[in-house]
């Protein structure tokens, strides 16, 4: 079923655009060049952070981190290999993308760890960055209970990502 979602979106948006007499091709091109700009803007961060992540892995630090957090994570049902992703995710979006991509490459995109990492990335946000952008722009200094509530949402996301990875892809 999920196979048809993206082709259908492409087909229906193009059809709608033509029906509304928009220049569909030009609009898609504009969007694509925006996407390219976005990529260029995150590329330097990806290079730096993947360098750091590869070094962490080669040095055995990621393995060690997983072992340290293993007791807590096992209780929550989160695979210990994803410990580094869980720790990085709330702070930096590009670091989380780098770590997640590395986990998927190392364990395989269709492995349990790879899928859990992908679901985690897809269903959580860069919490602290978002909080600072919103409260910074609105000039709020007392954030009250926002941080605990947002972190609770993140924790729910990490646990549920691990659970749904097991339930939707058994075996």
């Amino acid at each position: 079923m999920t196979d048809y979602i993206v082709p259908l979106i492409l087909l229906s948006t193009a059809a709608l655009g033509l029906w509304k007499r928009e220049n569909v091709y030009d609009i898609l091109l504009q969007g694509a060049s925006q996407g390219l700009k976005l990529l260029v803007s995150i590329l330097p961060a990806l290079i730096l952070l993947l360098t750091a992540v590869h070094m962490l892995r080669a040095s055995g630090a990621i393995e060690l981190l997983g072992q340290v957090f293993s007791p807590v994570f096992t209780r929550l049902g989160i695979p210990r290999e994803t410990a580094i992703l869980v720790l990085v995710r709330p702070f930096s979006g590009s670091a989380a993308l780098a770590v997640g991509a590395e986990l998927m490459a190392q364990y395989g995109v269709d492995s349990a760890v790879g899928r859990t990492a992908a679901i985690m990335l897809g269903s959580t946000e860069t919490t602290f960055y978002t909080i600072s952008v919103y409260f910074g722009a609105a000039g709020i200094r007392k954030t009250r209970y926002t941080v605990p509530a947002a972190l609770f949402a993140d924790l729910t996301g990490f646990c549920m990502a691990s659970l749904t990875a097991r339930l939707c892809f058994p075996g």
Binding site: I9, L10, T13, A14, L16, G17, K20, E22, V24, I27, L28, L29, Q30, G31, A32, S33, Q34, G35, L36, L38, L39
Partner: peptide, 13 residues
């Protein structure tokens, strides 16, 4: 890039 294009299209339509 493809998805940003679709996003633009969703906005303009």
């Amino acid at each position: 890039c493809l998805w940003s294009g679709v996003g633009r299209l969703l906005e303009t339509t």
